[in-house]
């Protein structure tokens, strides 16, 4: 999985460059993971700044990083942005939390019970196919332009990938592990806690990843359409006023938030389970 598997192309350094030269130090620096991650962004920002400075696009459509940083600073100082971020994150957290409760319970039920699986699997595929955002209109009719509507949509979004991944995770438990456990005398209850639950964790963590990926997209859409507060609302509000720089601010904030969710929640979860047990090496990151 790792993208850094580039050993075959690494050549020995040309002899004229010594280990202490600036070029060698530069290369050594580039190999450090944080630098390899951040360096491309620095290049993109630099290119962005140059393009904006040259005035290739009219400033009503495209602004440079300096302008965006400026707008970012003002909205932070005014307290608008922090409040919106808190709003968005709270909605996402509440939605994901409830979604986890429902999704995990249903996932195990459907994954472990043959009858439940047979009956609900087609329905599951269908209701997942309808997609979260299509529910927005009727949910608005039921609950109005409210926080409840946003939460319902996010719960809906998170639940389906979670169920499907947990079922897949349960199916992927090798038969011999189940046989080993039962031949060592595990009762049904013990089997559940000692084998099925840990066995489903890799599926669970990939389900949470997919669910969150869809979940926060649903959040943005809901905030744009329901439009009372939040990062999505801020972006669309700015767009209505023709304020490009705040649209850019919104996208940057979303990107950083996703990176933080990944680094603080998803990656540690995977590290503690999937990687520690050597099940899959660093899934899809």
């Amino acid at each position: 999985m790792s993208v850094q598997t580039t050993a075959k192309t690494s050549r020995p350094d040309p002899p004229r460059r010594t280990g202490t030269s600036a070029a060698a130090r530069w290369r050594a620096l580039r190999r450090r993971p944080l630098v390899t991650t951040l360096f491309p962004f620095a290049v993109v920002i630099a290119v962005w700044a140059v393009v904006a400075e040259l005035g290739v696009f009219p400033s009503a459509f495209f602004v440079g990083p300096a302008t965006v940083a400026d707008s970012l600073l003002t909205s932070v100082q005014r307290g608008i942005l922090p409040a919106y971020i808190v709003d968005s994150l709270t909605r996402l957290a509440v939605g994901t939390g409830v979604g986890l409760l429902v999704g995990v319970a249903l996932g195990f039920l459907i994954g472990l019970n043959r009858h439940a699986r047979r009956f609900s699997w087609p329905l599951l595929l269908f209701f997942q196919a309808i997609g979260d955002i299509a529910w927005l209109p009727i949910v608005i009719i039921w609950f109005g332009f409210s926080l409840t509507s946003v939460t319902v949509v996010i719960v809906y979004t998170v639940v389906f990938p979670l169920i499907i991944s947990i079922v897949a995770g349960l199916d992927a438990i090798p038969t011999n592990l189940l046989r080993a456990a039962s031949s060592l005398g595990a009762s049904r209850w013990r089997m559940f806690w000692e084998v099925y639950v840990p066995g489903a964790l890799p599926g669970l963590s990939s389900g949470v990843r997919t669910g969150l990926g869809y979940g926060w997209r649903a959040l943005i859409a809901a905030e744009i359409i329901i439009g009372t507060s939040g990062v999505g609302f801020m972006m669309f509000d700015a767009r209505r006023q023709g304020d490009v720089s705040h649209v850019f601010v919104g996208m940057a904030v979303l990107g950083v938030l996703w990176y933080m969710t990944d680094a603080l929640v998803l990656a540690p979860l995977e590290k503690e389970t999937v990687e520690r047990w050597g099940l899959v090496e660093g899934i899809g990151r």
């Binding site: 649903a218 943005i220 972006m235 649209v247 850019f248 919104g250 979303l254 990107g255 990176y259």
Partner: peptide, 10 residues
Amino acid sequence: ALAGIAWIPL
């Protein structure tokens, strides 16, 4: 991570 809906305003 950002693709799709987040681009609607832009």
